[in-house]
Design a binder for these strands. Sequence first.
DNA 1: CATGGCAATTGATCTGCGTCAAGGAAAAGG
DNA 2: CCTTTTCCTTGACGCAGATCAATTGCCATG
Lengths: 251, 251
Amino acid sequence: MAASRAPALSPKPPDCGDCPIRHRAVCARCESDELAELERIKFYRGYQAGQVVVSAGEPMGFVGSVVSGIATLTQTMEDGRRSMVGLLLPSDFVGRPGRETAAYDVTATTDLVMCCFRRGAFEKLMLRTPNIGQRLLEMTLDELDAAREWMLVLGRKTAREKIASFLATIARRDATLRPGAADGGIVFDLPLTREAMADYLGLTLETVSRQMSALRRDGVIRLQGNRHVTVPDLARLIEAAGDDSDGGLPG
Amino acid sequence: MAASRAPALSPKPPDCGDCPIRHRAVCARCESDELAELERIKFYRGYQAGQVVVSAGEPMGFVGSVVSGIATLTQTMEDGRRSMVGLLLPSDFVGRPGRETAAYDVTATTDLVMCCFRRGAFEKLMLRTPNIGQRLLEMTLDELDAAREWMLVLGRKTAREKIASFLATIARRDATLRPGAADGGIVFDLPLTREAMADYLGLTLETVSRQMSALRRDGVIRLQGNRHVTVPDLARLIEAAGDDSDGGLPG
DNA sequence: CATGGCAATTGATCTGCGTCAAGGAAAAGG
DNA sequence: CCTTTTCCTTGACGCAGATCAATTGCCATG
């Protein structure tokens, strides 16, 4: 969990089949020559768990998306209060065309591989390729919806409901990533520490811990170690979340 | 303050000089024939204070932007808990290309005029006119930033800070709408009831009221009636907001 | 001018979550 | 292996903000 800085090129870049920019973020409707152009300007970056990708206010020369691993988007006040404003899972896009500096701290919470494009080159390509902008608009609108869903969670839900909402979100996302496995319930690993969960949910880490224990006592979830979670009955979890049919994941 | 439904055409459509779609939302870089096309498919709608523009889940056949007046975007849980996820001020865009139904309740809190485009026609125009999509992407990214700023407010700020953040946001926005008037401080009218403020801030209306009174007692603001606010010293208000240089307005 | 309705204020009390503090469990590192 | 560090859990207590309840002020409208 070293938190040093210099990003390193990943030793073995994943092949294009793994690149969400191509398959999800940008190129769903691109022509082949546009794809070729994207290929020319793309490169991979690897980060270790705990490493800072960029800090808020720093120049950010690239945009890109997560290939594997998990990163967080956080904001910090001068007095140290922190708030997570996004959780970046594989295929999520990072960075903003037309902006010089990062608006938030981006941190890898697990080992992370990103597929990147130099910002300038990407912007120029966008001008010539409407599909890329279209796709980016769709993704941004999805993120906006997710952020707004989360405003309801932050502003109006109880601690227990917040935890349940978070777990349900992860469970659903995980379930779509690898379907099947409905046998003994949904099983996944929490991508965050209790503290990071607290920052995401507007709680303290103690409250997160207590509510996790409470959900365990009530049989809504099972825990093996600190991170490994089993949800025997997703419906019960969603019920505990006071769900307004939430589901989006703020990324 | 009737809350009936049927939208009415505004009696006297504002002239094009007032239309933010043309001037802000979409056409900053459009060619004249694109402008002409936009003119052909645009129309105005008027709503009375309290009227519902659309309800969440209902089909929404148009997109558009606010010309004058104020509207809110809210989400409600089955048990009645409500959360405001956006405040729509003049020039803000509403609606989502590519989506059939409204994701949130949109309600006019004052008399409201909107400049609208049929969704289908707008989408077709977007395909032929990259600039429109580009502009929409920029606006959406701004909204996303604002929503994320607001997540910090909701999750980590105290009641007093929340109120102060809200007032500072309104004050700033109002100041840019009509500059000058720095004489006796910034003066504006609150666009929301205490209850709506509470839904925006994740508080109860009683707490909003108490904190408003506290800010008045401390001389940070002055109140004439319930809605009319004077801020003698914006710096003091921002200080009270525990400000992390916020400023965006979630819309 | 009275009257009814809605919005806001203010007070009294309760409680969910934060704060402070002390261990315990699990990785990381030698 | 043991040591160190990091992360997590649990308890005791206090407080900010919710809840419950009563008034007050402000338009409307008859």
